[in-house]
Design a protein around this nucleic acid. Structure first.
Lengths: 238, 238
DNA sequence: ATAATAGTGTCTCTCAGACAGTATGTG
DNA sequence: CACATACTGTCTGAGAGACACTATTAT
């Protein structure tokens, strides 16, 4: 960090959150429709300016709750990365600290003051290309790029952590867990091998002894185990 | 991001870089001794305030060069994460965007204006504990934690990317590459299996046809291949 | 009965780890 | 020669992918 020779330039600092969940079997992200300029009427990530004495994580959580009514546990929120290109916000120089959150089913979002609407979009429908541009719904700022980076974080973390359990209810079946992987990775998985890998990874899941009805044979219910990282990892098929 | 209802608080934004290299077979980080308050006389990461119309990456690179005389290629610099706890800088509210850089041998650093000295420290000698506190050299701000996070990034990236080639010269032997892994991971690797894995990963390295003398039989020289990610990964032994 | 999903058993191929042995330089 | 490092060959065990088969529900 620099010495005190000249007064440093000032920035606005925002926190924007990529909240991901599975809706109707599809990986989905929570967006708001902006009520104010800039990008009024565009869809954007929920977020806003960090306050003077507020921790970054707390600010992300507060803004998410204010704009969408959804409150996430602090440990379900993790920093993604920061975006601060000059000109990314036409008002003034800003840096945004992007967060990702992974949740199971939530209550329907309710639009807060700064938002005209708040709802989930299936990530596929946004059709974000390699350059971080959405070919579907136009997104505010550089939020298409941020969403793409957040989705890639989720895809990578499924491989070597127990993140998938964040997307399902407290009790869940192996089939439900598999459908999380399939939704996030966007590909079908081999059912029998998936089961063998999950049950063969100590601490990933624990049986509860209960069963749940399905469209076929009822399934054993499990809950999240103590492990947080997977050894060995469950790798994406090539 | 919030609407325009109230004027947002302002932050100073800095970029600090964890520049890692291998010196004397040990993973080492470049630090400067601070000339000015706060933390005058403490060792710190090179970095400083981002300027008004400057991209974050460019600011990190500029500050690194100003304070240490070391200029890194932009593609050898990647964002680590941001740190912005209230009170982390006693002067004013700041957020720092931390970067990591991975380089082969560099010219010796030369202390710039804000630094009384600049030199490399073996990461082990800093003895950073799980809480991100250095038990050896006292470090300014939250830089011990940032260094620990940067080192963990390097350790993780060796597994699934060709990052190791950034730590060696343009031409290198398999033994040199193995010693990079050993220095970063802090453990000896099985020589024959390491060779088999590296040569069996398409695009990791390409033979040059030349040889280099060693303390034993001369070794084939290789250069970096086209691959950037490793399939399959080279996993850390348990 | 069929359809649908849960769950088991097993074969094969790849690959990591381990180890033995050979090759080629220096002192 | 001994010594050091580079390099090769091969065995074994773990695990991924593929497939066949059985189990248990609803309709």
């Amino acid at each position: 960090m620099s010495g005190a020779r000249h007064e440093p330039d000032t920035f606005g600092v925002t926190a924007d959150t990529v909240l991901l969940t599975i809706r109707n079997g599809r990986l989905s992200v929570l967006l708001i429709e902006r009520r104010y300029e800039p990008h009024r009427g565009s869809w954007a990530l929920p977020g806003g300016f960090i306050e003077r004495d507020e921790d970054l994580d707390a600010g992300a959580r507060r803004e998410l709750a204010e704009e969408t009514g959804i409150d996430v546990e602090p440990n379900h929120l993790e920093q993604l990365r920061s975006y601060g290109a000059p000109g990314r916000d036409p008002r003034r120089r800003t840096v945004t600290i992007a967060y990702v959150a992974f949740v199971a089913r939530t209550p329907d979002p309710t639009a807060g003051d700064d938002a005209r609407a708040a709802r989930f979009f299936a990530v596929d429908d946004l059709a974000i290309d390699d350059l971080g541009q959405s070919e579907g719904t136009p997104l505010a700022f550089d939020h298409a790029r941020i969403i793409a980076d957040g989705v890639e974080r989720a895809r990578a973390k499924l491989e070597y952590t127990t993140l998938a359990t964040a997307f399902v209810e407290d009790q869940f079946t192996i089939g439900e867990l598999r459908r999380v992987y399939e939704a996030v990775w966007g590909m079908p998985l081999h059912e029998a091998n998936f089961r063998r890998k999950v049950l063969g990874t100590p601490g990933f899941v624990e049986p509860t002894g209960e069963t749940a009805p399905t469209d076929g044979r009822p399934a054993q219910l499990y809950r999240k185990g103590e492990a947080t990282s997977l050894h060995p990892p469950i790798l994406r098929p090539t």
